[in-house]
Nucleic acid binder design. Structure first.
Lengths: 240, 240
DNA sequence: CGGAATGTTGAGCGTCCTCAAGTTGGGTGG
DNA sequence: CCACCCAACTTGAGGACGCTCAACATTCCG
């Protein structure tokens, strides 16, 4: 009955059995999506809320010059903005990275979920606040960190997020991101990203190869990144 | 009775007389704040929602190295996250730029406003979506635009936002941001920002001096920035 | 009126980019 | 099962954008 989306929300606070059932029902007809498939494009009229049950996706913008900027990664359990339907058109696109299982929750159904289950609303608003915190961390990285720090910081973030949802246990986990995608996330060229990855490998901090990230020396990686996990808000406020 | 906050929300959709009255009541006891005063700091436990009735503020983070990154500007009528109280601690700080009038809306009162007035909830969620769109635009700028493009883009954004709330009419408006603050917004050094401003001035695009931005040639500025206003979402979806 | 904050300009340097030429690896069809 | 092909990755060389350090000018504010 449970799925990754429900698991994630429950990590933000207890949900009633009815709430879980309602969520399960709302996400019970997911669609299989191939890799590299646009779920929605900039300029499109927003439709249902996308919920990633399996697989990774990413938000991005393409500039007139053709360059791309990755804005966020969606991992299993993540969803896009709850109230997306209030806007007339999308200001960015969302594309799958791996083959995925995507549930689509219509706007009336989403409103009902939020209205009838306070626990769901709280968990979803918390999730959205965390996503905003991640965006702020990205802005900070892009503005004020050197390239090697940016790379290390993103790897720390992705590792923690993956571990939070049970996608990583040891120091190794599956990271299905190409160097091109990572470069477009970090405001770098693929060439330079490649050199930075080598530098991190030679330094004994981490190795990214064949879709797997191996964190050889967590302390060193954290230190290079200047990483502070507070913005992921794992410690939530107790009591309402 | 109306204030800048109510004006802003009404621009996102009609509000009932009761809704306006409830908003007016919730923001009826604003506090005067001096310039450069932290409203809340990273690590603090979130309290009430801050509503800027008059004056400018900015969100920022400070890295261990002491460098600062500006994350967003709050103009009159803007407020911080509605559900901020769900989190255990702030992941960034907020500081006034100018002397300001700030209303503080407690969490129960905010929840009541959202619950009892669908129009308020819709307007506030829309405002939050726009703020997120702005963050995405910033990430895009930092990652994929050259410094002169970044500067021009931010100026276009600030000008439009100011005009939307009646703070600019012609091609001139009051922009109370120091070059240091702008540099910390754009991931540049103050020295380089100064040179870029000069370049924009010499090119006849715009002049920033003594707290005023003069847009000499809007077309040129937009062209340099590669600016597309879609992310500010002025055109909202019609009908619910 | 004085001091501090802010803005301006110069010179030299380093990070990261561009262009270019491979190499490796994964997937597909014969 | 192998050959091929395309995407992804790797490495080198040279150049440009933006940084650092430093000195000075100007404006704001008490």
């Amino acid at each position: 009955m449970a799925n990754r989306f429900i698991d994630k929300l429950e990590a933000f606070g207890p949900l009633s059995a009815q709430a879980v059932a309602a969520l399960a029902k709302a996400t019970s007809r997911p669609r299989k999506m191939p890799a590299k498939h646009d779920l929605i494009r900039e300029g499109d009229r927003p439709g249902p809320v996308f919920v990633m049950l399996e697989g990774w996706a990413y938000r991005y913008k393409v500039l007139p010059s053709g360059t791309r900027q990755v804005l966020a990664y969606l991992m299993p359990g993540d969803c896009c903005d709850l109230h997306i339907g209030l806007l007339a058109e999308m200001d960015h696109s969302i594309q799958t990275i791996t083959p995925s299982l995507v549930a689509m929750v219509g706007r009336p159904e989403m409103d009902t979920l939020l209205d009838e289950h306070r626990g769901i609303a709280k968990a979803m608003y918390t999730a959205q606040l965390v996503d905003e915190g991640i965006m702020r961390a990205w802005i900070t990285s892009m503005g004020r960190r050197a390239s090697i720090e940016r790379v290390a910081h993103l790897m720390c973030e992705l590792y923690l997020r993956a571990r939070n949802i049970g996608l990583a246990d040891g120091e190794t986990f599956a990271l299905p991101l190409s160097q091109l995608l990572l470069a477009d996330s970090l405001g770098m060229t693929p060439v330079h990203l490649n050199r930075v990855l080598k530098e991190l490998r030679v330094a004994g901090a981490m190795t990214l190869a064949r879709g797997s990230l191996i964190i050889a020396d967590p302390g060193k990686l954290i230190q290079i990144a200047g990483f502070d996990a507070n913005y992921l808000h794992r410690r939530l406020r107790q009591a309402a």
